[in-house]
């Protein structure tokens, strides 16, 4: 059986947080779809709340401590990432952004990333398109066409839950197809790799 690594990053602050709930639903949907295609999954869940101090310290010192480094390795070494944030003040939360700020600029190059967001009302849902898509676009990650926003009202009421379920199902299917084709976890990036012959870079004539 083929196998794929998926890192789930959630920036919810409550316990339980609706961001985590949405992240779990998106994960389930993805895992089911991949299993149907005979692909096994290895899931690593990263709750950014647990790393909040470490992320701030990494910004101040320029290096991650070992807990944060483990989380970063799980994300950058995955075949796909599920990223879910609460919407605060019209966009992703500061903690969510800070985590992606401490990654190397090319760490998510070509990475399938399923994005989701939660908020008090559905009026915030466009934050997915005006906030999260540009962020992952800058990082050259691949975001599937369907993104999922869950407002408080989506979690209750018969018609509402059915609608959220349908969006999660569609998003999971689109993301699973990208993950199935992704082999990022096999290509190890070496930050110490040299880029070509040194002597040829010198110019001006070698002594």
């Amino acid at each position: 059986m083929r196998s794929r690594a998926i890192a789930v990053v959630t920036a919810g602050l409550g316990a339980p947080s609706s961001s985590r709930m949405l992240a779990d639903r998106l994960t389930e949907s993805t895992v089911e779809r991949l299993r149907a295609d005979a692909i096994d999954t290895r899931i690593t869940v990263i709750e950014l709340r647990d790393l909040a101090h470490d992320i701030t310290n990494a910004m101040l010192t320029g290096f991650p401590n070992s807990e944060l480094a483990t989380a970063i390795d799980a994300v950058t070494g995955a075949d796909g990432v599920i990223a879910v944030t609460p919407i605060f003040t019209a966009s992703y939360s500061g903690l969510f952004k800070s985590f992606f700020d401490v990654l190397d600029r090319d760490a998510l190059d070509g990475m399938p990333v399923l994005v989701g967001a939660t908020g008090g009302t559905e009026r915030h849902s466009l934050a997915l398109d005006h906030g999260l898509r540009p962020l992952f676009g800058y990082l050259r990650a691949v975001v599937p066409p369907t993104t999922v926003f869950a407002a408080s009202s989506d979690w209750g009421g018969a018609s509402a839950t059915a609608a959220l379920g349908a969006r999660i199902h569609r998003a999971g299917a689109e993301f699973a197809d990208l993950v199935a084709r992704s082999e990022r976890s096999l290509s190890v990036r070496d930050p110490f790799a040299l880029d070509g012959d040194f002597a040829s870079r010198i110019g001006g004539g070698v002594a």
């Binding site: 040194f198 870079r201 010198i202 110019g203 001006g204 004539g205 070698v206 002594a207």
Partner: peptide
Amino acid sequence: IENYNLLHR
């Protein structure tokens, strides 16, 4: 790289 090579020479 360029500046150091010149200095070295």
